[in-house]
Amino acid sequence: KHICAICGDRSSGKHYGVYSCEGCKGFFKRTVRKDLTYTCRDNKDCLIDKRQRNRCQYCRYQKCLAMGMKREAVQEE
């Protein structure tokens, strides 16, 4: 069993190059498709875990990228 590289929830498989849960997969897809931009209200180092993953979209998206999620993979779907 794999866990989500972004928030630690149960992974549903590899999405956009990274083991991730449905929540983070959908979040990344929406962000890329709609070309959304986020801002962090703190120091750009918010904790992203299962409980708090919805608290800061900026940091969640940065963690998706840092863990290796690929924007191109969304476009190719």
Score class of each variant (00 low, 15 high):
1 K>D: 09
1 K>R: 03
1 K>H: 03
1 K>M: 06
1 K>S: 02
2 H>K: 15
2 H>A: 06
2 H>M: 15
2 H>E: 15
3 I>Y: 07
3 I>N: 11
3 I>D: 07
3 I>Q: 03
3 I>F: 07
3 I>P: 06
3 I>T: 10
3 I>K: 04
4 C>S: 00
4 C>Y: 00
4 C>E: 01
4 C>R: 00
4 C>M: 00
4 C>P: 00
4 C>K: 00
5 A>F: 15
5 A>R: 14
6 I>T: 06
6 I>K: 00
6 I>Y: 00
6 I>S: 02
6 I>F: 01
6 I>P: 01
6 I>H: 01
7 C>K: 00
8 G>M: 06
8 G>L: 03
8 G>P: 03
8 G>K: 07
9 D>E: 15
9 D>G: 04
9 D>P: 01
10 R>F: 06
10 R>S: 07
10 R>Y: 09
10 R>Q: 11
10 R>H: 07
10 R>L: 04
11 S>W: 06
11 S>P: 15
11 S>M: 05
11 S>G: 05
11 S>T: 05
11 S>Q: 05
11 S>L: 04
11 S>H: 09
11 S>D: 10
12 S>N: 15
12 S>L: 13
12 S>E: 15
12 S>V: 12
13 G>V: 06
13 G>S: 04
13 G>F: 05
13 G>I: 02
13 G>N: 14
13 G>R: 09
14 K>R: 05
14 K>N: 09
14 K>V: 07
15 H>Y: 07
15 H>G: 07
15 H>N: 03
15 H>T: 03
16 Y>W: 10
16 Y>G: 12
16 Y>L: 08
16 Y>C: 10
17 G>Q: 05
17 G>I: 03
17 G>P: 03
17 G>C: 11
17 G>L: 05
18 V>D: 03
18 V>S: 02
18 V>L: 04
18 V>A: 04
18 V>T: 02
18 V>P: 03
18 V>Y: 03
18 V>I: 04
18 V>C: 06
19 Y>T: 06
19 Y>A: 08
20 S>P: 05
20 S>G: 15
20 S>C: 14
20 S>N: 13
21 C>L: 00
21 C>S: 00
21 C>P: 00
21 C>F: 00
21 C>I: 00
21 C>R: 01
21 C>H: 00
22 E>H: 05
22 E>M: 04
22 E>R: 11
23 G>N: 03
23 G>M: 02
24 C>N: 00
24 C>Y: 00
24 C>H: 00
26 G>Y: 06
26 G>I: 04
26 G>R: 09
26 G>F: 04
26 G>D: 13
26 G>V: 12
26 G>W: 07
28 F>K: 00
28 F>S: 01
28 F>R: 00
28 F>H: 02
28 F>T: 00
28 F>C: 01
28 F>I: 02
28 F>P: 00
29 K>T: 13
30 R>M: 04
30 R>V: 02
30 R>A: 04
30 R>L: 03
30 R>D: 10
30 R>Y: 04
30 R>S: 04
30 R>P: 01
31 T>S: 09
31 T>E: 03
31 T>C: 11
31 T>N: 05
31 T>H: 04
31 T>G: 04
31 T>I: 05
32 V>C: 02
32 V>Q: 10
32 V>E: 13
32 V>F: 11
32 V>G: 07
33 R>I: 11
33 R>N: 10
33 R>A: 14
33 R>Y: 04
33 R>H: 10
33 R>V: 12
35 D>G: 09
36 L>W: 09
36 L>Q: 11
36 L>F: 14
36 L>S: 10
37 T>A: 13
37 T>W: 07
37 T>P: 15
37 T>N: 11
37 T>F: 08
37 T>G: 14
38 Y>I: 08
38 Y>N: 05
38 Y>P: 14
38 Y>K: 05
39 T>K: 13
39 T>N: 13
39 T>V: 14
40 C>Y: 01
40 C>P: 01
40 C>H: 05
40 C>L: 02
40 C>F: 00
40 C>S: 01
41 R>S: 10
41 R>N: 07
41 R>E: 15
41 R>F: 13
42 D>V: 03
43 N>E: 14
43 N>C: 05
43 N>H: 15
43 N>I: 12
44 K>M: 09
44 K>E: 08
45 D>M: 02
45 D>Q: 12
45 D>E: 14
45 D>G: 12
45 D>W: 09
46 C>Y: 02
46 C>V: 03
46 C>N: 03
47 L>E: 11
47 L>G: 12
47 L>T: 12
47 L>V: 10
47 L>N: 05
47 L>S: 04
47 L>K: 07
48 I>K: 15
48 I>T: 11
48 I>V: 14
48 I>H: 15
48 I>W: 12
49 D>L: 05
49 D>R: 03
49 D>F: 05
50 K>W: 05
50 K>M: 14
50 K>F: 10
50 K>A: 14
50 K>C: 04
50 K>R: 09
51 R>M: 09
51 R>W: 08
51 R>N: 06
51 R>G: 12
51 R>L: 13
53 R>L: 08
53 R>F: 08
53 R>C: 07
54 N>H: 15
56 C>Y: 02
57 Q>T: 06
57 Q>W: 09
57 Q>H: 14
57 Q>N: 07
57 Q>L: 10
57 Q>K: 05
58 Y>N: 05
58 Y>H: 15
58 Y>C: 06
59 C>D: 01
59 C>L: 00
59 C>I: 00
59 C>S: 01
59 C>A: 01
59 C>F: 00
59 C>P: 01
65 L>R: 05
66 A>N: 11
66 A>E: 13
66 A>L: 14
67 M>H: 09
67 M>S: 12
67 M>D: 08
67 M>Y: 10
67 M>G: 09
68 G>S: 05
68 G>K: 06
68 G>H: 05
68 G>Y: 03
68 G>E: 05
68 G>Q: 07
68 G>N: 09
68 G>D: 07
68 G>V: 01
69 M>R: 00
69 M>E: 02
69 M>D: 01
69 M>I: 03
69 M>W: 10
70 K>M: 08
70 K>N: 15
70 K>F: 14
70 K>V: 14
70 K>I: 13
71 R>E: 11
71 R>F: 12
71 R>D: 15
72 E>K: 01
72 E>W: 14
72 E>Y: 02
73 A>H: 11
73 A>F: 10
73 A>N: 12
73 A>S: 11
73 A>Y: 07
73 A>D: 14
73 A>E: 10
74 V>C: 12
74 V>W: 06
74 V>I: 10
74 V>M: 09
75 Q>A: 07
75 Q>P: 11
75 Q>H: 07
75 Q>T: 10
75 Q>G: 10
76 E>S: 08
76 E>D: 14
76 E>A: 13
76 E>T: 07
76 E>R: 08
76 E>W: 07
76 E>K: 05
77 E>L: 10
77 E>T: 15
77 E>M: 08
77 E>C: 12
77 E>R: 11
